[in-house]
Design a protein around this nucleic acid. Sequence first.
DNA 1: TCCATTTGCGTAAAATATACACATATAATC
DNA 2: GATTATATGTGTATATTTTACGCAAATGGA
Lengths: 230, 230
Amino acid sequence: MDLKQDIKLAVDIVIFGYEERQLFVLLIKQKYGKYKGRWLLPGGFVKNKEGLKAAAIRELKEESGVVVDDLEQLFTFGDDVKRDHRGRVVTVSYFGTVKPSSMKLKAATDSIDAKWFTIESISDLPYDHNQIVETAFNRLKSKLNYQPIGFNLLSKKFPFSDLENLYMTILQSPIDRRNFRKKILSFDFLEETDELLSKGSGRPATLFKFNKKKYQSSLKRGINFEIKFA
Amino acid sequence: MDLKQDIKLAVDIVIFGYEERQLFVLLIKQKYGKYKGRWLLPGGFVKNKEGLKAAAIRELKEESGVVVDDLEQLFTFGDDVKRDHRGRVVTVSYFGTVKPSSMKLKAATDSIDAKWFTIESISDLPYDHNQIVETAFNRLKSKLNYQPIGFNLLSKKFPFSDLENLYMTILQSPIDRRNFRKKILSFDFLEETDELLSKGSGRPATLFKFNKKKYQSSLKRGINFEIKFA
DNA sequence: TCCATTTGCGTAAAATATACACATATAATC
DNA sequence: GATTATATGTGTATATTTTACGCAAATGGA
């Protein structure tokens, strides 16, 4: 075993939120160090007896107050030996999705503040955090096309138009309302509630909710959830 | 910076080869340590001033003699704190594809031997290497469906039946020869040569070759390379 | 009451996938 | 040399999926 290895291992987390036709990314304001006062991704060093994903969940909670029970591993950044000024640091990035209104942001260890930023407003982050956000955004977009990942970003019960707007916002492309609805409903993982929602003028919308059991049984039946758009 | 962190960072590499309707994985025979004499994935510790992918390429070459110019990052294993008996080791896994007959295997540092194993014959590898191989195999299968990844595994010039057999072998499902050919040709990244290949009886096959430029121009035109099978 | 707005549903046309059948060119066999 | 076995090369009809729309229904506001 090479005892001279001196590489630090960190995690960084990209959390997406969605509200009112806008996609947000969670950033924190750094408390210490070279980038004190700067906004960047939540993250930090992995503890010796802590799993990678656990470290990401912990750091996220500590620095922003956001609690998630699962994150997806994105990519491990470590080809650039000098990506961190403090020495050799390799970081394992994670991404997740939450509904911003369901989370109360609060700063704590290592962070002064935590805030949602629209994806367009993000630029010039320290380290290679711009690249990490870009990687996460690409993953989000591509996953949206073949996995029902959008439901974490909406309320439990939502009108179809919310889902439609979410897709159009993230994929940045127009969608035919009628074909989209048909396609999603054909997957048979949405459950129609008997509630209606009237927002302003127009016909009230029936509220739907995502049914995880139906989703899983559809998965077993080998259904392909791919969505194609014109 | 947490100076007490004591985590070692390693890389492990899964290289696939294909020959005669069989898919192979490259393993090496360990020279030292607890698993001396056992077959396992090539890999090793990352050097302080060495990029992750570079480390993977180096270890692969040192331990097996296989030279590749690129590898794809697979997954970083580090949720299990005790995946390695030597202490806390996190490993970044990579995968790649080569044509076995074009590579001369030779052992060197840390390995006694290097050999191709059929994917079915692999079982009971040390550490979590079975899981790494499984992850890589799943990635290979899914990539085959939407990227022209199979050509690295074949000769430069090949008959269509080679490609067909490759797909059937990896995906473990029968393919309609005529529809497969039509689909692949419609992507317009194969070039027909004027050479014919006669192997045994039967009509000689025209040899094709993968045209990278055509592929890239098709990519730009937004062509979807997804292949669906019955 | 009329109009603007949003939801909900259906259907025709185009594109794609699927399921097949047969001609062609070679080696092996008689 | 004729016949047979084997693998390659191409076409076409049918089923399925995607795409492009039109219009009715239910509400708030003028």
